[in-house]
Amino acid sequence: MGKSKGARIIITLECSCRNLPNTEKRAPGIFRYTSSKNRRNTPNRIELKKFCPKCNCHTNFKEIK
């Protein structure tokens, strides 16, 4: 049997540009990343700056449930 990961959980990060009007050259849609975090060390929602191909720039990605 394999060990359980314990406090580490998989989270989904979603771009904060999802509410902006669709005036960019890129295709429409919401871009998401998946990552993992330690539930004990970071109980609050994470916000990371990553590249969004829809915006074609680095934007803040917020954790969603």
Rank of each mutant, 00 (worst) to 15 (best):
R45W: 06
R45Q: 10
K62T: 01
R40C: 08
N44K: 12
K3C: 14
I46E: 09
S4E: 15
K49P: 01
F51K: 04
E63G: 03
T12F: 10
R45Y: 07
P21M: 10
N56L: 11
K37C: 00
N44I: 08
T34G: 00
F61S: 00
I11S: 02
S4K: 13
H58M: 05
A7I: 08
K62H: 04
E63F: 03
A27M: 11
Y33E: 01
I30D: 03
C52W: 01
C15A: 12
I9S: 10
P21D: 12
I11V: 12
H58Q: 10
K54V: 12
R45F: 07
I46H: 03
C57R: 11
C15R: 02
K37F: 00
L13M: 13
P53T: 09
E63L: 04
K54F: 03
I10G: 07
E14H: 06
N41R: 13
E14F: 06
A27F: 07
K49E: 09
T59W: 00
N44Y: 10
N44V: 04
F31C: 03
E47R: 06
P53V: 04
E63H: 00
F31W: 05
N44P: 03
N38W: 06
H58Y: 15
K49R: 08
I11Q: 09
K3L: 13
G29F: 08
H58K: 11
K65M: 11
K50S: 01
T23A: 09
I9T: 10
N38L: 04
K3H: 14
E47V: 02
N41W: 05
R45G: 05
S36Q: 12
F31D: 02
R26Q: 14
N19R: 15
C52H: 00
R40M: 10
R18E: 15
N38F: 07
N44A: 11
R18H: 13
N44T: 10
R8M: 13
T23K: 09
I30W: 04
L20N: 10
T23I: 10
I64C: 13
C57P: 00
L48N: 04
L13V: 02
F51H: 04
R8L: 11
T23N: 11
R8A: 13
E63R: 05
I30V: 14
I64P: 02
P53E: 04
M1L: 14
